[in-house]
Design a protein around this nucleic acid. Structure first.
Lengths: 159, 159
DNA sequence: TTTTTGGTTCGGTAACTTCCGAACTAAATA
DNA sequence: TATTTAGTTCGGAAGTTACCGAACCAAAAA
């Protein structure tokens, strides 16, 4: 059940990326990558320990965190006490929904900034006013793009 | 030169947001917000110390970091040794360019994941293949959206 | 009933981040 | 020439994060 050198390399590489994009601890990010790069049969707790070379307690904590965040899921087999972990089937949709939430946040922030500047720094705002507007329009287009994509994915996954 | 309660509230509120979205230390994030919410005349080193209630050394370090990151700039007045700090006129454009870089990164990551899964987990990939494709299309549309917005902003700012 | 399996929980620690104070510097002023 | 101004730089303290080992627990197996 050990990993090919190629997979090990990807786990580290994409792991670093996921630390920032998903705001996860290094170990959690690596586990998440393993789940995404693994077949539907999933991995057991022990396999994850071996692949990550991390301790039992750390694996337990981070697995439970990922479960709670809905990034991974597990299934069991009859007459087998072990849990088999894999990426949540909805993980890309969940990712997009997280993006949607943060875009909405960002739109609010931009609105607060432009509102403040247009009332308290009006002479500054007059000169640069168009740029914040273009920025906001960009954010709104992106929000639409996200909503449409989420809708399309829902359509596929609910059929 | 002290701040209105409204501005103080915004500095903290948007500051927390900027810590994550711009990957800045708390103090750096707050200084950046101050710059964005301030008139074109900018603020001096001492004013920033008073508003943030931070030490000289911390303000110095974080100001230089923000300058290096091109998020803020300063100007001087003849016969006045002080520097006047303000948000970089290009800060929204710079923000979008950072977004563009990370989108391009993300596209690469998604490509690596789908490539790996389609060769090593082909049976898994067959069932979920459409979703990663939609995801990638979403990223490409977003990249276009970003590039167009950056172009529009450049047009305004270079005129 | 004892042991093994498949974990969880807790206390601590090592490493990293963030900030501060004190000493320093270079230019301007007295 | 001495002092003030406008910062910079360095060593370290305090707080936070990420991980580990050891003790623990509940269910199943021996």
């Amino acid at each position: 059940m050990s990993c090919s050198p190629e997979k090990i390399k990807l786990i580290e590489e994409i792991g670093v990326h996921f630390e920032k994009t998903h705001q996860l601890a290094p170990l959690a990010a690596r586990i998440y990558v393993i789940m995404i790069l693994s077949p539907k049969e999933g991995h057991t707790f022990d396999e994850i320990m071996t692949i990550t070379e991390a301790s039992k307690s750390s694996v337990s904590t981070q697995l439970n965190l990922l479960l709670q965040l809905n990034k991974i899921e597990y299934f069991t087999k009859p007459g087998d006490r072990k849990r088999y972990f894999r990426g949540n089937k909805m993980y890309l949709k969940n990712t997009l929904e997280t993006y949607l939430a943060s875009i909405s946040e960002e739109i609010k922030v931009v609105e607060k900034i432009t509102e403040f500047n247009s009332t308290y720094n009006s002479e500054k705002y007059k000169k640069t006013g168009e740029v914040p507007l273009l920025f906001k329009e960009y954010l709104l287009r992106q929000k639409e793009n996200l909503k449409n994509t989420i809708a399309k994915i829902s359509e596929i996954q609910n059929k």
